[in-house]
Design a protein around this nucleic acid. Structure first.
Lengths: 351, 351
DNA sequence: AGCGACGCTGTAAACCTTTACATGAGTTGT
DNA sequence: ACAACTCATGTAAAGGTTTACAGCGTCGCT
């Protein structure tokens, strides 16, 4: 018969240590403020009684929970895992715990998690999905009060929320520049979901790159898609079915890139000989794939750390205005890109 | 100047609705127990005042948090993501939230999360890493009191904790049976980390399979490893450097399998023509890999759901004894296995 | 009419901690 | 020697909810 422990409280500890309740509280909260003798007595008593702080009581009284909500659209997406580790690392350093909310892209669900802020159950929130959940929560009304919130990777339009990420437009440009530098002139782009802000930034970078390097830009060059292998495959199929297929593809993320490669292989094409592919994100499997993916590496751990650090400041000082942070990305050249088999024209020099 | 909302409490709602505090509480907690008229007045007042329940106060009073801790050794491991979704789904159905604790295999960290149970901040715990964290927490002493805990996938030795998973031994056996059925006689096994229980169960299944099908069993056939691509690669290299390399490999999980394939390819071998590989887990990338992985599929979402359901029962009734649950697994045959190039002997029929 | 039962509502205690304020002892400065 | 401080400690209120218990009106039954 598992007996729940009749929990010891501060009162019990105070009694046993022959001090007042307040002194016990202070002994734990502000180590300097209680004399050496008493502190020792208190610690000993707490140990003997197997005392543990009741966090709910503390939160109730101090109006803060020590918890931070992290909203993720899909925890299965490997892009987020390292990010999460960075967040968690920094959170621990700040004495905070994180609560991961997987929204599956469901706004309703996101709102549920966001409500944790309202109920004082969380002190702040990190957004990973490019949408402000509160908005959905009860119609169009945005919560009037401001909570500590920071966004990672995606700038949230119309919301005054600090962000840490990379310059996606520039990265997209660089991906195209790499392909153009190899001699490709017919470069397609498979995009992410239309409602995602990153999609447009990367596509914009693509467009500028294509223009700057004098490459082709035909109507079907920009394929709509989604951040998944399946979508990448489907889009690649369309591209390959077109009248003049591209010799290279810039995919909006690595999963799309993998999908594209699968489809190309299925049609007997060799990557990179017949088709070059560059991805985005540099997920763990990018390096292990066959061929190893050329892709844009984002400093994910650092992004997580920085975001959490910013949030920490915001929690202690809500009036603090945080500026956006843009970190360095990196084009990682691996085996999925090569010069086109028959260079349509001679290689274009980079501007 | 972001003004924190001067939060409305139940008292305010009671005042506005001209009822007592208790009635408001009951109106929310037990819908049936308050008259229609009052309920309406209360709901209206709550809406007008923008009232939200203070969860900390509730937790303090009711001694439960509505939170469940899920301990994961590595959130980056794709095996866990779907599992998590199953857990989360079921948790939501039960009105519980989950707190994901990534331990990075660090016992100290696991103990930190486990302490959430002590501090009444969590009502229960789901273990995904095969170790009981409390044990590490303060030396050898296991907490005397019992908390609602259930383990997924790994039976925890020496602890009386209910588990949901699959029969890993049988699955290992089946993997070998599949290879033997294709005609392989020289089948190696790359194992997971030695301190993991699954490692031994799968290895045991392998041994029994090899024996039952009259295959070779040489000293180096069982390669120690870890659940990672890198480890799989290294082990495969050793196997291939041996005097009589295997024609097939059973890897303890998919990442090992991918590592093994990478190494084989690097040496100019073709999979499955020169080497058959079967993995374990059927992670998302198994299907997309080249070649698509033959592997053991675990019903991950269902495992998560069941575990959470069991935990739910345990939370409401701590005395309830839960029996272990073994779910159905499935061997998924894809492109990474084939008959050996030169069948060493004629195909062995399955017993 | 009287009695018990029942259903709804109110009163007040309890949950455990933090913290403003009060107290008193010890120290410093003049 | 005494005022003015400092410092460690104690007292008690506050934080927002749940819930045992009590009160009261209504209904049905005899």
């Amino acid at each position: 018969m598992p007996t729940r422990r009749s929990t010891a409280t501060m009162k019990d500890v105070a009694l046993k240590a022959r001090v007042s309740l307040a002194t016990v509280s202070r002994a734990f909260a502000a180590p300097g403020s209680v004399s050496e003798t008493l502190t020792q007595r208190i610690v000993a008593a707490a140990r003997d009684l197997n005392y543990t702080l009741n966090v709910n009581a503390r939160s109730l009284r101090s109006q803060s929970s020590g918890l931070v909500v992290v909203l993720i659209p899909d925890i299965g997406n490997p892009f987020f895992s390292v990010l999460l580790q960075g967040i968690e690392e920094q959170a621990r350093a700040l004495g905070l715990a994180i609560l991961i909310g997987d929204t599956h892209g469901d706004r309703e669900l996101a709102a549920t998690y966001a409500r944790l802020l309202d109920t004082r159950r969380a002190d702040g929130m990190i957004l990973l999905n490019g949408t402000v959940p509160n908005r959905a929560h009860d119609g169009a009304r945005l919560s009037p009060q401001r909570y500590p919130v920071v966004a990672i990777s995606e700038r949230i339009p119309g919301a005054d929320i600090a962000m840490v990420g990379i310059n996606n437009r520039a990265a997209g440009f660089e991906a195209v520049a790499h392909l153009a530098g190899l001699g490709h002139r017919r470069i397609a782009h498979i995009m992410g979901p239309a409602d995602n802000i990153l999609t447009h930034e990367r596509a914009q970078g693509y467009r500028e790159g294509v223009l700057a390097h004098g490459c082709d830009l035909w109507p079907e060059a920009l394929q709509p898609g989604a951040f998944s292998i399946r979508a990448g495959r489907a889009a690649m199929a369309k591209l390959l079915d077109g009248p003049a297929p591209p010799t290279a593809v810039f995919a909006a993320n690595d999963e799309i890139a993998i999908g594209a490669i699968i489809e190309a292989k299925a049609r007997g094409l060799h990557v990179p000989r017949d088709l070059s592919v560059v991805g985005f994100d540099d997920i763990e499997y990018a390096e292990s794939y066959d061929p190893a993916l050329t892709t844009i590496n984002q400093p994910r751990r650092e992004m997580g750390r920085r975001a959490m650090a910013m949030l920490g400041e915001l929690i202690t000082d809500p009036d603090h205005r945080q500026a956006d942070v843009n970190l360095e990305y990196q084009l990682v050249v691996r085996a999925s890109t090569a010069p086109p088999r028959v260079a349509s024209r001679k290689p274009v020099s980079r501007t």
